[in-house]
Deep mutational scan, measured.
Amino acid sequence: MDVFMKGLSKAKEGVVAAAEKTKQGVAEAAGKTKEGVLYVGSKTKEGVVHGVATVAEKTKEQVTNVGGAVVTGVTAVAQKTVEGAGSIAAATGFVKKDQLGKNEEGAPQEGILEDMPVDPDNEAYEMPSEEGYQDYEPEA
């Protein structure tokens, strides 16, 4: 019985440690998101679009440190934060509304985080759909 109880105690310690790591990862992701939003706020009209992409990228980098179902929630929060940063930029006159959601080359930025393969159960990952990809044929 002692062996059984000791095993359960060790398992509990492992769960607590994993929860603490997840909590730490979420806190880091939130900190990076805040950094990115402050970065966007300090940019001029020309830099705002690039700044919004930076927020998304920093958040995406930190999301990889967070495991399990938390990833889905962090990704949703990050996307809403990026959308909010863009709205703030438009409201303050840093950028025109028609410039939001495009990178410096004018290509749409939507789907940055949505296409990231995420499995809350950590069982399997699927690649994003290939609808947006084109076949590449090298020139002879």
Rank of each mutant, 00 (worst) to 15 (best):
M116Y: 15
V15F: 02
P128D: 04
G132T: 14
K23M: 14
S129N: 11
A89I: 14
Q79D: 05
D119P: 04
E61Q: 08
P138V: 14
Q109N: 09
A91I: 12
Q62A: 15
K12Q: 01
A90L: 15
Q24P: 12
E57Y: 03
K21V: 07
I88A: 13
E139G: 15
Y39H: 09
A27S: 10
E126D: 09
T75H: 03
G93F: 09
T75I: 13
E110C: 10
A29M: 04
T64W: 14
S129Q: 09
V15R: 00
K34D: 00
G111V: 07
G93P: 07
Q24T: 11
T54F: 14
A27G: 04
V16L: 05
K32M: 03
N103T: 14
D121R: 13
Q79G: 06
K6T: 03
P117L: 07
T81A: 15
Q62G: 01
G93L: 04
E126L: 05
G101P: 00
V16K: 03
P128T: 05
G86S: 13
V16H: 14
E83L: 11
P108K: 08
K43L: 04
P128E: 07
Q109D: 13
Q62W: 10
T59K: 01
P120I: 14
T59W: 15
D98A: 08
V48Y: 04
A91P: 02
H50V: 03
A85D: 14
G31L: 15
L113I: 09
E137T: 06
P117T: 11
T59S: 09
N65S: 02
T44V: 05
S87W: 02
A30C: 05
L100N: 10
K6I: 07
S42G: 11
V82K: 10
K60Y: 12
D2C: 11
G7A: 11
T75Q: 06
G132D: 10
E61H: 05
G47Y: 14
V55Y: 02
A27R: 14
A76Q: 11
H50P: 09
E105T: 11
T64N: 07
N103L: 08
E104N: 08
H50M: 06
K21N: 03
V118C: 12
G31C: 09
Q99V: 09
V37Y: 02
K32N: 03
A27P: 00
M5P: 00
G86L: 10
K60W: 02
G47H: 10
M116A: 09
K12Y: 11
S129A: 11
L113G: 12
A56K: 04
V95P: 10
V40D: 00
K10T: 06
A124C: 08
E137D: 07
G25V: 02
P117S: 06
K80S: 01
G68N: 14
E130K: 07
E57A: 06
S129M: 10
P117M: 09
D135R: 04
I112L: 14
V118F: 06
L100I: 12
K80V: 03
D121S: 09
G111Q: 00
L100C: 04
Y125Q: 12
T59M: 15
Y39A: 02
A53L: 04
E35F: 12
K12N: 01
K32C: 01
A140I: 05
A140W: 10
K60N: 04
E126N: 14
K32E: 00
K43P: 00
G132I: 12
M127R: 12
A19E: 00
A85M: 15
V49W: 12
G25E: 07
K6E: 03
K102S: 11
E20G: 04
V15W: 14
Q99R: 00
V66S: 01
T81L: 04
E83P: 06
M127S: 08
K45H: 07
E20T: 14
G36R: 11
D98L: 15
K58R: 01
V77T: 03
A90V: 13
T72H: 01
T75D: 03
E20P: 00
E28Y: 07
D2K: 06
A27K: 12
D2S: 02
A91R: 03
G132A: 10
Q109L: 12
T54I: 12
G36K: 05
G14I: 15
A76I: 05
S87E: 01
K45S: 04
M127E: 11
M1A: 02
E130P: 12
M5T: 02
E110S: 03
V82T: 03
D115W: 09
E137H: 03
M127K: 10
I88N: 01
E130F: 09
V82E: 03
E110T: 07
Q79L: 06
E28P: 01
G41A: 00
V40T: 02
V37S: 01
A140T: 07
K10W: 07
V70G: 02
E20R: 03
P128R: 08
F94P: 08
P128G: 02
K12G: 07
G25Q: 12
E130V: 06
Y39N: 07
G36L: 02
V66W: 13
P138C: 04
A140D: 09
T75A: 10
T81S: 03
E126Q: 08
G67M: 05
K12F: 15
A29D: 00
T81Q: 03
M127W: 12
K60F: 03
Q134T: 06
A17S: 12
D121H: 06
E137Y: 02
K80M: 08
T92E: 02
D98V: 11
G47M: 13
Y133L: 13
S42T: 06
V74C: 08
G14W: 09
T22F: 02
A107Q: 10
P108A: 12
T44Y: 13
G101Y: 15
G93D: 05
G132M: 14
E104G: 03
G31S: 15
A11H: 01
V55L: 09
N103E: 05
E20W: 07
V118H: 07
D135G: 09
V16C: 09
A19G: 14
E104W: 14
G101E: 00
K10H: 14
Y125G: 12
T92V: 08
V74Y: 03
T64R: 13
Y39M: 02
G31A: 15
T64G: 08
V15M: 11
A56D: 01
E130Q: 12
G93Q: 07
E130D: 07
D115H: 07
V3F: 13
V77D: 02
A19Q: 01
M116L: 03
P138S: 01
G132V: 02
M127H: 13
A90I: 12
V82H: 06
V15Q: 01
E126V: 04
V82C: 08
Y125F: 14
V74W: 13
A91H: 08
G73C: 15
G73A: 09
T54V: 14
P117H: 03
V71C: 14
E130T: 07
A19C: 05
A91L: 11
D121F: 08
N103F: 11
A90N: 10
S129F: 09
K102P: 06
Q109E: 14
K96P: 13
T33A: 10
Q99T: 13
P138I: 07
E130C: 06
P120V: 07
T72G: 10
E137N: 07
A140F: 12
V70W: 03
L8K: 00
K97M: 01
T75S: 07
Q99S: 15
V52W: 13
A29I: 11
L113T: 12
A76F: 03
V71D: 02
D115T: 13
Q24A: 02
T72M: 12
Y39E: 02
K45Y: 08
Q109A: 08
V118D: 13
A18R: 03
I112Q: 12
K58I: 08
Y133V: 14
T33S: 08
Y133T: 08
V52N: 00
F4T: 00
G73Q: 11
V74H: 04
D121A: 07
S42K: 08
V74F: 14
G132K: 10
A56F: 13
T64E: 02
G36Y: 15
F4W: 07
N65Y: 06
M5G: 02
A91M: 11
V70I: 15
E139F: 10
K102R: 01
G67F: 04
A11C: 00
D2A: 03
K58M: 14
P120L: 09
E105W: 11
V118T: 15
D98K: 10
A107D: 13
D121E: 15
E83A: 12
S9R: 14
G41W: 04
E110P: 04
V49K: 07
T64Q: 05
V82F: 11
A11P: 00
V74A: 07
A89P: 05
A19V: 10
V26G: 01
E139M: 08
E20Y: 15
